[in-house]
Each structure stands twice: as structure tokens, then as C-alpha cells.
Design a protein around this nucleic acid. Structure first.
Lengths: 125, 125
DNA sequence: CCATGAACAGACTGTTCATTC
DNA sequence: GAATGAACAGTCTGTTCATGG
């Protein structure tokens, strides 16, 4: 089971999903995080670049990193303080797979960067 | 009439359509071109970057540059030689609008490039 | 086969709704 | 309101089909 999408159709630019997954892994490598917390952080990061990710994309990315890529595991924990709300906290489950995934995305990011630079060169001499 | 799409939803990366439109304008600024000819040229250009545009995207881009952006006009011409096949050749109709469009896309390309560079910086120290 | 175009279908993502604290 | 999740809807794009030389 668990065979899912495989990208590389005609290969234009990287998809938002993969881009967010990369950031999520890196953040979780440095500590525990849960969904809305990641959303706030990433919104803050990308706001200056006119990009504002949505909460559903973050959750989809987290679910795929757990179910498809098998890179993360989740834990439900009671929030600190008086509140008895459960939140879903993620941590790295397989750091080798995490490393491999990041390597893949890095290559794609560099490819995309070159494509954009080429477009600027070719069209604005 | 003729009110159509306006991008900037949450603003991740530039869309393939806009990217191709830019190249199409630049190519047509330097002479007459028709659809499949542009397709061949652009496939050749982007092949080394793992990107291979499809013919329907080229046609959609051309149609929008004519109908929506009002930057191009088309002419049907008989192909040279013995063949009596008509092909659809485009030329610039409004070079001011072309210039303005390219300026817009340039800004977006630069924004995207910065976003990618940031991702490389942030995740691969 | 070349050339243009439209129709159809699927993938990706944004908006909304549902549920629980 | 915070948090998670799923359902729904729309857009973008790839594949296929249709037409004509």
C-alpha cells in the first residue's frame, strides 16, 4: 500500500507542497512543532515575498510527511497550562529519509533557480 | 467584457502560462513566429532544465496574449513552397502593453528567484 | 506527418465547513 | 478563539480527440 503521486510530469517549477515540506522538516529538526505554529512561522517568513501559505496546505504537507514519506511521527500532547486542549506535535521519525528528501528538494530548488535566472537573462538583456 | 483571471491568490511561484507568455513576446519581438515553431524552440531551450512545455500550453498562451492582454495579433498565411497549408503567424500589436507586461513578469521572476534562494539558504547551511 | 484547436481529465491548492477544546 | 481535519470548489496544466492540409 501507500503508493502515491510521483512528480516529474513535464517539470516546470517546484510545487508549493514540496517547498513547504522542506521547511517543515528543517524546523522540526530543531525541535517540536505543531501545525498552526508552523503556519504562523512560515507566514512570517514568506510575507515579505508575497507568499502566504494556508493552513490546509500545512496540514496536508504534515500528513504526507507522515504517511507517504514516512519521515515524521506525531504525538498528541496536552497543551501546557490550564488548557486541556490536545495538540498534535511532530518529530523526526527517520532522519535518513529526511536527509534524502531534503537532498532531492535541494536539487530541484537549484534547477528552478537556474531556470528563473535563465528567463531573466533571456528576456531582459 | 473581457474581464478575466487576475492572479495573486496567495502568491507562491510564477505560473507556467505567464512564464511562457514572456518568452513568446520576446521571440515575437524579434520576428514572426507560429505556434509549433515556438513550441520546438522553447522545448529546445528548456530541455536541459528538465522542463518540456506542451503544445496546448503554447496555444493557450498565444490565445490569451491576443484576447486578454491584447498584445499580439494573428495573421493566417499560406506556408511557403508547394504546400497550401495555412499557418497562424503572430506579431506584436501593442508594444507598449508588451513592455508593460514584461515588466510585470520581470518583477515576479525576481521575487521568485529570491524566494528560492532564501529556501536554499534557510534549509542548507 | 504538420498544424491548430478544443474537450476532457487530473493534480494542486484555496475556501469553507465540521468538530473539539 | 485556537487547533485539527476533511469536503468542496476552482484553477492550472497534461492528455486526448477532432479537423484539415
Amino acid at each position: 500500500m501507500a503508493e502515491r503521486r510521483q512528480r516529474e510530469s513535464t517539470g516546470f517549477l517546484i510545487k508549493q507542497r514540496a517547498f513547504l515540506k522542506l521547511y517543515i522538516i528543517t524546523n522540526i529538526e530543531n525541535g517540536r512543532w505543531y501545525g498552526l505554529q508552523l503556519l504562523d512561522e512560515l507566514k512570517k517568513e514568506f510575507k515579505p515575498f508575497g507568499f502566504e501559505p494556508q493552513h490546509s496546505e500545512i496540514y496536508r504537507a504534515l500528513h504526507e510527511l507522515e504517511d507517504d514519506e514516512q519521515i515524521l511521527t506525531k504525538m498528541k500532547v496536552k497543551q501546557d497550562g490550564a488548557k486541556r486542549k490536545e495538540i498534535v506535535v511532530y518529530k523526526i521519525k527517520d532522519s535518513e529519509k529526511a536527509k534524502a528528501y531534503k537532498k532531492l528538494v535541494k536539487a530541484d530548488l537549484e534547477r528552478c533557480e537556474q531556470l528563473l535566472r535563465k528567463a531573466i537573462r533571456d528576456n531582459f538583456p
